[in-house]
Amino acid sequence: MSLAWELLKRETALSWGRGGGPLVSAGFYLGVATLLPLAAGPEPARLAAVAPGVAWMTLALATLLGLDRLFERDYEDGALDLLTLSPLPLEFVCALKCLGQWLATGLPLALAAPITEIALGGSPTLAPLVLVSALVGGLAFAFASGIGAALSLGARRGGLLTAVIVLPLFTPPVIFGGGALDAFASGLPWSAGFVLLCAYAAAAIALGPLAMAAACRNALS
């Protein structure tokens, strides 16, 4: 158990420090949020209508940052070989890597999401749901994107390839979360979308590590 704890600390620290960590993610996130009024026009009514959606989608895109280093660094310096020899099953190691990634980047971004949503003129009553959706959705994004990162190990142009693999996997959580926010904003029952988002996150956490571990073993073979 202490071994898992040490590994989680290592992964979180690596994600935190990896190329700027949460600073780069937050910078990207704020940058996209700033570009939106410049691109779509500053009228408050128009911005308020798309604010939750943009806050939500940018979160998905920001998850892609630093993803190409999630497994690639350990793969290149041989740490991944050592991790397969550890007493912890590789599936568990992969889950911890994704969890570390989420703690270092997903969590800070989830805190920034409601602020962005309000800054763009979205309703403050929506902020709690944005925060909770971002927390749950961030987990789903982290575990789904780990699959793409593990599969493109050793590939040419791995970073771009990871995004191409991962973005289709992101569609269900983006739809569910966006649907929940949209329904809440217009006063409709929103729980269905949120429950589906939670279900997707749970499925990603349960099944993602199996695929990641299989992909890592394949890349190392």
Partner: peptide, 25 residues
């Protein structure tokens, strides 16, 4: 994505397994 992954991996046996995992996902 499947075809992109297939063409990005040079080692054919590794590409086969990685693509199979992606297909099942």
């Amino acid at each position: 994505a499947y075809m992109a992954l297939r063409s990005a991996l040079d080692d054919e046996t590794k590409a086969a397994r990685a693509c199979a995992i992606l297909a099942l996902v």
